[in-house]
């Protein structure tokens, strides 16, 4: 089963002399229940692929199929976000500063038409290891790791099957990163989630993913298994270079 199929994806920003081709002809498949990683340097287009899937990058061409349904244009149908959710890089920027945790989660559940919002908010907080005492706090009263847990809870609220993770731990300390990575691994095992994870840190991808694509200047240069990565069996010189730099 293929959860996500990206075929010949191009994404660009701007026009004329300021046009930037952020992604050029990217193709990959992610199976149901798989964890797939995208690595590359900044500006290589890895986050842009996630943004194109969710409709945050309006100018794109190619074929994207999510769970058997092709997606088109800028707008996504409402049901799309019940399947696909995203966790952003910076938990300091992705939460509304004047909404309490309860409002953030409650609003998401309300928009997706759930009933028993009260019970679901409580359950979500327990699932991400925060507990009830955090329910009426505001983002500035939380640490970076706790905020990222709230962002993960928000992404889990519509019960998605595909989670797009855009550098979920790069703004966090290593000790907190370990907690969040453990949480993400547990959630995937419990709920049978599919992950598409972007990171610049090859060891994080190596820890979390089954397969990965190496990107450079908007192109996928190589797709390989994590086992091959661990055995230093990268074929493309750029992947070898990345691998050397992170060992």
């Amino acid at each position: 089963m293929t959860m996500l199929d990206v075929n010949g994806l191009n994404v660009w920003f701007g026009k004329n002399r300021d046009r930037v081709d952020a992604v050029k002809g990217a193709s990959f498949q992610v199976g149901t229940g798989e964890s797939f990683g995208l690595v590359g340097e900044s500006g290589s287009g890895k986050s842009t692929i996630l943004r194109a899937i969710t409709g945050l990058a309006p100018d794109w061409s190619g074929i994207i199929t999510v769970d058997g349904t092709p997606i088109t244009g800028k707008k996504r149908p409402r049901g799309f976000f019940k399947t696909v959710q995203m966790v952003f890089q910076d938990p300091y920027a992705s939460l509304h500063p004047r909404h309490s945790v309860d409002q953030v989660l409650g609003e998401t559940l309300h928009l997706h038409g759930f009933d028993d919002i009260d019970g679901r908010v409580a359950k979500l907080l327990d699932d991400v290891g925060l507990g009830q005492k955090f329910r009426f706090r505001y983002p500035h009263q939380l640490s970076g790791g706790q905020r990222q847990r709230v962002a993960i809870a928000r992404a889990l609220a519509p019960e998605p099957t595909l989670l797009l993770l855009d550098e979920p731990t790069s703004a966090l300390d290593v000790s907190v990163q370990a907690e969040i990575l453990n949480l993400l691994a547990d959630l995937r095992a419990d709920r049978g989630l599919t992950y598409l994870m972007v990171s610049h840190d090859l060891s994080v991808i190596g820890h979390m993913c089954d397969r990965l694509a190496v990107m450079r200047n908007g192109e996928i240069v190589e797709i390989l298994d994590v086992d091959a990565l661990r055995a230093s069996n990268a074929a493309h010189p750029y992947s070898q270079q990345l691998l050397e730099a992170s060992l």
Binding site: V174, S175, S203, S246
Partner: peptide, 15 residues
């Protein structure tokens, strides 16, 4: 607590 490519583990150690 750092993940390592050369020493894979199921769970990372928490400080």
């Amino acid at each position: 607590s750092l993940p390592r490519l050369d020493a894979p583990r199921d769970r990372l150690e928490v400080l």
